[in-house]
Structure formats: C-alpha cells, structure tokens
C-alpha cells in the first residue's frame, strides 16, 4: 500500500515555484516567531526595573515611616511660643541684647583708638621739641 502511494505521489506533478513559496512562507513564520520572542524578552526587563524602583520606594517609605514614628518628638525643634507677639518680643529682646553687647565692644574699641591717637600726637610733639 505504502509503495503504491509513493509511486502515485511521484507521478503527481509539482507546481512550479511551490518550493520557493514554501521557503518564503517558512522564513516569514520564522521572522514572526523571532519578533514574538523579542517582545517576550523585553517585557521581563521592563518589569524587572519597575520592580526594583518599586522596591526602593517601598524600602524608603517604610524606613522613613519607622524612623518618623519611632523617634520621640524633638523638643528642640518645636516653637516655644504659639503667640507671634510673644515670639516677636523674645526675638527683639535677644537681638537688642546682641546689639547692646556688640556696641559695648565697639565703644571700648573707639575709646582705645582715641587714646592711641592722643598718645601718638603727644609723642610726636615731644619728639619735635627734642629735635
């Protein structure tokens, strides 16, 4: 039966250009398959980077939440006065104190400069008398 079939098949004429068409079709399928695999391999890359970015965001978020809630409230960073007028009075008082002390120092410097100038004048006078 098989021998008969083969013989029959051999007798059937092969249409012209069938082989080339088949080859072209196979090549086309191969190309399509390649593109599909490329697309498949690209997707995991995108997912991988997204997962990394999401993990970093989660780690920072959770970490900051724990740091923020775990630490006791820093009293040093809390305003002492809730009333702006009182805060203003305290700030003015502090600044005036600084200004007063700076001026005290400057006054002493001015006095020292005046004494130094007077001494220089007297010394120059004495030197000119001697000459």
């Amino acid at each position: 039966m098989d021998t008969l079939n083969w013989n029959e098949l051999d007798r059937i004429p092969i249409p012209e250009g069938l082989e080339e068409r088949l080859e072209a079709k196979i090549d086309e399928w191969e190309k399509e398959e390649e593109q599909r695999t490329k697309r498949r391999s690209l997707m995991p890359k995108v997912l991988r980077y997204t997962a990394i970015a999401a993990s970093i965001a989660v780690v920072f978020g959770v970490g900051y939440h724990f740091i923020d809630s775990g630490e006791p409230v820093n009293l040093g960073q809390q305003d002492t006065y809730q009333d702006p007028i009182l805060a203003q009075q305290e700030a003015e008082r502090a600044l005036n104190l600084l200004a007063v002390n700076l001026n005290k120092g400057m006054t002493q410097m001015e006095k020292a400069r005046a004494i130094s100038e007077r001494t220089e004048i007297t010394l120059n006078k004495q030197l000119s008398v001697l000459q």
Partner: peptide, 26 residues
C-alpha cells in the same frame, strides 16, 4: 530654660516690625 523661636514665627514678627533700640538696626 530653653526657648526656640522658629523661622515662621520670626517672619510673623518681621511683619509686625516693632521698633528696635534707638541707634541700633536689628
């Protein structure tokens, strides 16, 4: 005794603009 006046409060104080001591520019 610890007193802290923040930037926010200082800005509020700045708006009120109280006079400084005579001859001193604070």
């Amino acid at each position: 005794t610890y007193v802290y006046v923040s930037k926010f409060m200082l800005q509020m104080a700045g708006k009120a603009a109280a006079p400084s001591l005579p001859g001193m520019n604070t």
